[in-house]
Structures are given as C-alpha cells and as structure tokens.
Design a protein around this nucleic acid. Structure first.
Lengths: 237, 237
DNA sequence: AGAGCCGATTGACCCAGATCAATTTTGGCG
DNA sequence: CGCCAAAATTGATCTGGGTCAATCGGCTCT
C-alpha cells in the first residue's frame, strides 16, 4: 500500500446510506447486523494507479469496492500481463484459500473501498450463514464470468473480442447508472489489450475500423455505440 | 441425459467408504450427517462421451464426481469449443446462480457420479454452514484456477501452454495417485487443443517437438516426462 | 503560447500458429 | 487376420495479429 493511502473519517460513515448497500455483500444483512458490521469496515481512498494489494501478498483484508474502477491482473515473470477482470462498485475482493491474494489490484482513477481486517470479518461471518451464502453467490457469479472470459480469450477473433468487451462493459454499467449507448472507458487501451489477450495496436486498429464502418464513435473517455445491433452481431459471431 | 445412463444399486453404497470421502464436499460432514447425506445422493454411471448435462439446461441436480474424468466446455454458436476445465474425482459440479448450468459436461471414458437432486440438497445445506463453507472453498479454488487459465489463454505461447498443461495435469493427478513422471492423458488431442486455445495440429506438433528434443516421450495413452525440469522451464518462461 | 510527455494511432513488415491437405497410426470387429 | 473408421501426425501454405517504428494529439507546466 502506497503512502498516499488515506483513511477517510472512519467513524462518520454509515452502512445504511452506503452507495452499494443494495448490491454488495452487505445486502444480505438486516438493520441490526448492519449496525454491528459498520464497526468492522473502514473507508479508505486510493488515488489513480495506486496498488491496493498485490498477488502473493498475504491476505490481511477483504475489500468492498464503493466507488471507482479497479484493474485486477496477474503478471508473468517476464512482465506479460493478463487482466483477469475490472472491479466496479459493489464488487467484493480478497477471497482465497491459500491465504494469499491470487491477483493484484490497482485503482484506475480514484477509488474508495470499504476495508475489512480478515480476522474480525471471518469471525463476523462465522455465525451468519446468510452472509456466507451471499459471498458464495458472488463467487459463483464471478466463476461464471471467468468461464465466459476463457471462451473469449481462447476462441474469439480480435473483432469479436473488442465487440464483446464493449457490450459486456456496457452491461455491467447498467446496474450502476441508466443504460446508455455511450460507454465510458476509464481504463487505458493497454488495459483493454491486456484484458482481451491482444496488443495495444490491435485494440487501437479495431476501434478505428469499427469507427470507419460507422459502428461506433470514439469519443473522449469512451465510445458511443452508433449501431448497437451491429456490435452485438460482431460479438455473437 | 442419454439412455444408457444407469443408476447403480442406489442403496448399496455408503458414503463412509466412498473413494472421495476425504476430498469432496462431503469431507465437511461428520459421521451422523453422513448417514443422512447418504440418502440424498444416488450413484449414476455414464459411458464414455455421454453428456451428463448441457449448458443452458435448467439445473436439476448437483454432481459429485466419484470416478473417471469429465470435460467441461462451452460452445459458440458456430461450433467453436472452449474447454473450461477437466473434472476429476472429488470435484463438485452444478453450482450456479442463474438456475441453469453455465457449461456442458461430458464423460471422457466411463464416469461414476454421485447425483443430488437440487431441492433436497439445498435443504440439507440450509442449516449446515460448514457444508456451505466447504462448497465456497471449492468455488474459490476453482476461481483461482480459472484466473490462472486466463493468463495461459491470453498471454502464453503454444509451447508454454502445452508445457504448463502437462505440469498442471500431473499436479492434479498427484492427490489421486502417487506422483509420477508418467502422465496419463485420457482426453483426446482435440480436447487438449480446445482447452489450450490452440488447434489439434499445433498440439500434435508441439508434442512431437518436445519428444524430438528429448523432453517427453509420447507413450500409449499419455506422455512420460523425461526431463521434468525442462518442462517446468518451458512452462515458467 | 510553446515545450515536453504520454497515450493513442497508423504504417510496414513479419511470424506463430491456423488452415488445408495428405498420410499414418490405432483400435475395434467380423 | 484384414478391413474400416477415427484419431493423430506431418507437410505445405496462408494470414491474423504481433512487432517495430514513426507520428499524432491532448494535457500539463512554465
């Protein structure tokens, strides 16, 4: 964790009016439990491109992402990087069995997390099977996403990868704000490339190609889907 | 499920002397629970290349693999296939949140599973958080494997993929039998290709190349690692 | 406004792995 | 055993996406 990590007024926040109250792990808790839960978490802010935790670090905390976007990735010894996912508000990070994180997590832009020390959080779960069930639900959902991503990485062309990425990302943003054909892309081209198993040049060329064909428009900080049906056709192929 | 699916003497088997007693979901149950659990599962056999369940099927059962190997895969509309994993004895299949399976599962060679109807199994879990915790543990482990596989699919060369596959497969077999430099490969070359995001020709050529270099020997039904250190070097790269 | 920087784009060329096309090997089975 | 079908191997060729190398464009700092 970098020096600029800052704990923000740890005692002035309440779970009951948390932005992710409805979607995160805590959605499984009732009002009484929530009041107790409140004391376990500590709101922490990270600036853009700061590392929240690294692969192989001993897991000291779990994290509930409240605000911002994170890139989750693994590195090969020679520096090749595979982004295994992007985290959005409501995502729960840190579950593992080895006692060590199995990927690294960076903030993309500023990020606010709710951080739980491992031991007290574990104790809190102990006699609350509904919370455990919720965590399991999230794990199973992620597993399903992971398998879909394997298909993309192993069997899809560059065009299909990019199209599927745009649709998938838009879909994930739906639950956070209203659906829109304007898709913000806070991550860099390099991030997208490392997520899709491509190079930055191929991602860039594919974007340009889609734009030339009138399928998307590249705008500042994202893209606009001019012809969403066409994008879907490309992704399905 | 195919016609030749056969339930084998459902009442003549006991969990207590089950082959996967120690490693499967049921490892979290005590003797008393096990006796009750026994009535929920039904031993079923599938012949080689039979489909146990298909993607998008409504999940009616969970499965505990007792014997044999299964291929777990997803298909694209045009027939491209990505194998998302191979299941071995002790693996638990069927968890999902959508109520539908999110991949298909075929037997590779004969397979015996312990099949649980969804509803009674769900009820059994209800008031047994330790079983739920065990299931969560398995899900989290699979998630970790899935992420490792994403790195392989997105960022590794054909040589690295094949080497990593041989080592990973050998490693998984360790817990079942004694470690050995002889690695049985019950799946076809096409299966390996679809697992690694390659074509069958590339897999075949890579095997041949490794053999020419004296790193492995291709034997009937598998390979022998003549120079395990070299294989590890290739996989790590 | 200009300089410098960093991310993104574009172009030229290359190569790992795909594709296409024969064999060869293996495994039943009468 | 000899015959057939399916799996695996091998060879020849092609190409999607990688690599290498310039720009280009926006932003920040002065």
């Amino acid at each position: 964790m970098k020096p600029s990590m800052v704990t923000i007024e740890p005692n002035r926040h309440f779970c009951s009016d948390c932005a992710v109250r409805g979607s995160a792990v805590c959605s499984s808790l009732d009002a009484a439990e929530l009041r107790e839960f409140e004391h376990l978490g500590r709101r922490v802010h990270f600036d853009g491109s700061e590392t929240v935790f690294s692969e192989e670090d001993i897991t000291a905390s779990f994290y509930n992402l409240l605000e911002g976007v994170m890139r989750l990735y693994k590195l090969l010894p020679d520096g090749r990087r595979q982004i295994v996912g992007f985290a959005l508000p409501g995502d729960f990070l840190g579950m593992n069995i080895s006692g060590r994180h199995n990927f690294s997590a960076d903030a993309i832009g500023g990020v606010t997390v709710c951080q739980f020390a491992k031991a007290p959080f574990g104790r809190f779960i102990e006699d609350r099977p509904h919370l455990l069930r919720r965590i399991n639900e999230l794990a199973v959902r992620e597993l399903s996403q992971a398998r879909n991503h394997m298909v993309l990485l192993g069997r899809r062309s560059a065009d299909e990868k990019v199209a599927a990425f745009l649709l998938g990302w838009r879909e994930r943003l739906v639950s956070l704000k209203e659906r829109s054909d304007t898709v913000p892309l806070p991550m860099s081209r390099q991030d997208i490339a490392d997520y899709l198993g491509l190079t930055i040049e191929t991602v860039s060329r594919t974007f340009t190609k889609l734009e030339r064909h009138g399928v998307i428009e590249i705008i500042h900080g994202g893209v606009s889907l001019l012809d969403p049906a066409k994008v879907e056709a490309l992704a399905a192929a």
